[in-house]
């Protein structure tokens, strides 16, 4: 599985890449804005999923979503917006533009795995790993 992480914060790219590796994603590319993301797309080796921030220089996340949906070859890329934009209207806009899911920053790492599961990329482990005082 291949992923593209698009965020202008190097620290956030690093966090997201680490979590994706934890979720079993083995090929991860990073881009600092929409333009860089478009530039690094290879039609013969497209990512399965793109994690896209909203507020970035040059080309923002919403514009990138539009670009990814605008070209038939790129439409098979699943888009997860990961952004601090948390107004209801913004989420509606992103989904209408073609984002498949939306994760609001800040988030707990399990939330990213939940979103990957919703998108069919990561199967949650059945049962619960949080039962500190399970005894059997």
């Amino acid at each position: 599985m291949k992923a593209l992480v698009v965020d202008d914060s190097r620290a956030m790219r690093s966090i997201l890449s680490r979590l994706l590796r934890k979720a079993g994603v083995d090929h991860i590319a990073e881009a600092a804005d929409g333009c860089e993301a478009i530039a690094c797309l290879d039609d013969d080796d497209l990512p399965d999923i793109a994690l896209v921030d909203w507020n970035m220089p040059n080309m923002n996340g919403l514009e990138l979503v539009g670009a990814l949906r605008g070209r038939p070859e790129w439409r098979r890329i699943t888009i997860l917006m990961v952004t601090t934009e948390s107004e209801q209207g913004q989420i509606v806009r992103a989904l209408a533009a073609g984002a498949h899911e939306y994760l609001i920053k800040p988030f707990e790492e399990e939330s990213l795995f939940d979103k990957l599961a919703i998108l069919g990329f990561h199967q949650p482990v059945q049962g619960d790993s949080t039962n500190d005082f399970a005894h059997n």
């Binding site: 209801q88 707990e108 599961a117």
Partner: peptide, 20 residues
């Protein structure tokens, strides 16, 4: 909280069934 709605709730369901 936002942290709670981030956990497992599809974004389409969030905007359809919740108000900020």
């Amino acid at each position: 909280s936002t942290l709670e709605v981030n956990r497992g709730l599809p974004a389409a369901s969030l905007v359809r069934h919740f108000d900020r």
